[in-house]
Design a protein around this nucleic acid. Structure first.
Lengths: 340, 340
DNA sequence: TTGAAAGCGCTAACAA
DNA sequence: TTGTTAGCGCTTTCAA
């Protein structure tokens, strides 16, 4: 453990105080730029601190201030373009405001999600940004933490029975446009492949799909809708969906999630390659590789980076709020339809 | 700030001590399972702690023990399949050993990398796992930290003048096989698109490429090799490379990095779509979407997850070593050639 | 086997 | 404006 001791042989506030013949509190005040302190002493302290390359020990500060300047993030998977872009947005704001982020993955498992959240909470995060796993139904553990004072902001996959800030894409509109796009290109038998019914996104996107059909007088056929409980984490799930849908002869399909979109195309190419280029595909995906895909598809892109930014701004505002917040916002950001 | 105070109204060691009429040290010993302590008291303490859902405050512990049980990770981009898989491997080991991880992205910028590392160091990470940015040449700032006692393990992009553990893929062999694969399919004018010359991976992969050419008596033509200083972060870089290579009429190309591989295909499709299916492509990529690509390609897959695992095991062994380590390992893991 | 006490580095109420 | 002092929650030496 010597190694460690060594590393901390950096100067502390105490060292500076001693060297300059001041008290630690004066040094602290100079460094934190707080309270009344003479410009002169401040300058001296700052100069000396600079000279000895003083770095405040964030752990000591955290212990004293009872906060860690860190925020927790829970996503299902970082190897998912949507989420990695959201994370970039989160970081862009967090680092700016001097917070650091701790990322955890639920891998679409409720158990893992709960474990991670509790682990983060015990690590004294100051706030939590979370997109629920596709398995999650019981959010009482989050309510408990929230009640104990942990600020939480939901993004993407949000619960409806939880009063706090939420940031989502305009799922209804995005789905409506994607479905309508298929209709405009002459498709009439449009299947819909989607995630677990638990997810808010699933419900909203299903509504958009239905609305587009209704607008164009196409009867809604529940058989054309297939749910994947695990969000496409397992390829069997997708192959089964393909197998169930094809007998209905769809000429188009609208897919409601990143992993499902790519997973569906893979499953289709694997099981029925001859159909890959005959079924028109429109789906949610933030992959920056869509241009390379064959068959090509029309993609609904979510403003992932912005979602991350907005969620972080809201979270930090909650963390730094002087009084409990009672008015909550649901921010809805527009998607973009991209054809290649 | 009330919000915060509230959150910490969880029981502390002191509370338990008071409730049970013991001293804090006894409670601490019981909880940490240390020193001589009577089985009886231990049981009482443990039961009570369980009952009140006691959670140790990691910040207080860190301050006292001068370590944070967290490790820092620097990658260029998490939205890169290779790196996100490495991170999954890192987490699988770290969480098991009760460390948490803090991920930072350099975005291939030396300045950002240095900033992030120093930020992490000031956050008292216990160790660092890093893949250098494509811009990085001066690693003195890392040497300084290392000299001060911060354990560091390099992976993927490693420096040659730094004595510590390193974990890499067998870049030479992977490149050799990929190039040879192109040769076996009858290609003779094989271009090579690669990253910044700074990177260790660039050098090793170039050697593999050359060796395969040599084995098959194909003369090495330096003009067929193009370096991308920014690792394909900018699309212009790639379009220029395409423009420079095509006049040489390559019938195959071997590409040495994930982002370059996908970037090159995009650039080719954009500028010379008619050639997209005539040039045989082999390239490093860990994308799980290659099956969807058109044109298709032969991919060199790195054992990313394992690289993360091994690097983390080595790092934790350094962190927990009782005495300074003097023998270092370079672990080389085999790649896999996948044709679709 | 247990307790008292010091101290990790920092902040902030209170006193001067 | 500055200093004194207490204390955040925990671990650990020393004494009992």
């Amino acid at each position: 453990m010597q190694v460690h001791k060594m590393r901390f042989e950096t100067s502390t506030i105490k060292d500076i105080a001693k060297a300059l013949g001041l008290s630690t509190s004066t040094v602290s005040r100079a460094l934190r730029d707080r309270y009344e302190i003479s410009a002169k002493t401040k300058k001296i302290v700052l100069a000396y601190a600079e000279q000895v390359n003083y770095k405040a020990n964030p752990i000591a500060r955290s212990l004293k201030e009872r906060r860690s300047y860190s925020i927790g993030i829970i996503v299902s998977e970082i190897a998912n373009n949507f989420f990695s872009q959201v994370i970039n947005g989160i970081e862009s704001i967090a680092y700016d405001k001097d917070y650091h982020v701790i990322i955890s993955q639920s891998h679409e498992s409720y158990k893992q999600e709960k474990l991670n959240v509790e682990h983060l909470a015990s690590r004294s995060i100051d706030g939590l940004l979370i997109a629920l796993s596709s398995e999650t139904q019981d959010i009482n553990y989050l309510k408990d933490l929230y009640a104990k004072g942990l600020p939480i902001v939901f993004f993407d996959r949000v619960p409806d029975n939880f009063e706090t800030h939420k940031v989502i894409a305009n799922n209804f509109k995005g789905s409506f446009e994607a479905t309508e796009h298929l209709i405009y290109s002459g498709k009439r038998t449009i299947a819909h492949l989607t995630s677990s019914e638990n997810l808010s996104t699933t419900k909203e996107r299903l509504e958009g799909y239905k609305a587009a059909l209704a607008k164009h007088n196409i009867e809604f056929n529940p058989q054309l809708v297939k749910f994947c409980q695990h969000g496409g984490m397992h390829s069997e799930e997708l192959e089964q969906a393909v197998k169930a849908l094809l007998p209905l002869n769809p000429d188009g399909i609208f897919i409601s999630a990143d992993r499902l979109t790519t997973g569906f195309i893979m499953a289709l190419k694997k099981t029925n390659p001859e159909l890959a280029h005959t079924i028109a595909i429109a789906g949610f995906t933030n992959s920056n590789l869509v241009e390379l895909f064959s068959p090509s598809l029309t993609s609904v892109k979510q403003p992932a980076f912005e979602i991350g930014q907005v969620a972080t701004e809201l979270l930090i505002s909650m963390i730094e709020a002087k009084r409990p917040i009672t008015e909550f916002e649901i921010r809805i950001l527009d998607t973009e339809l991209v054809s290649t």
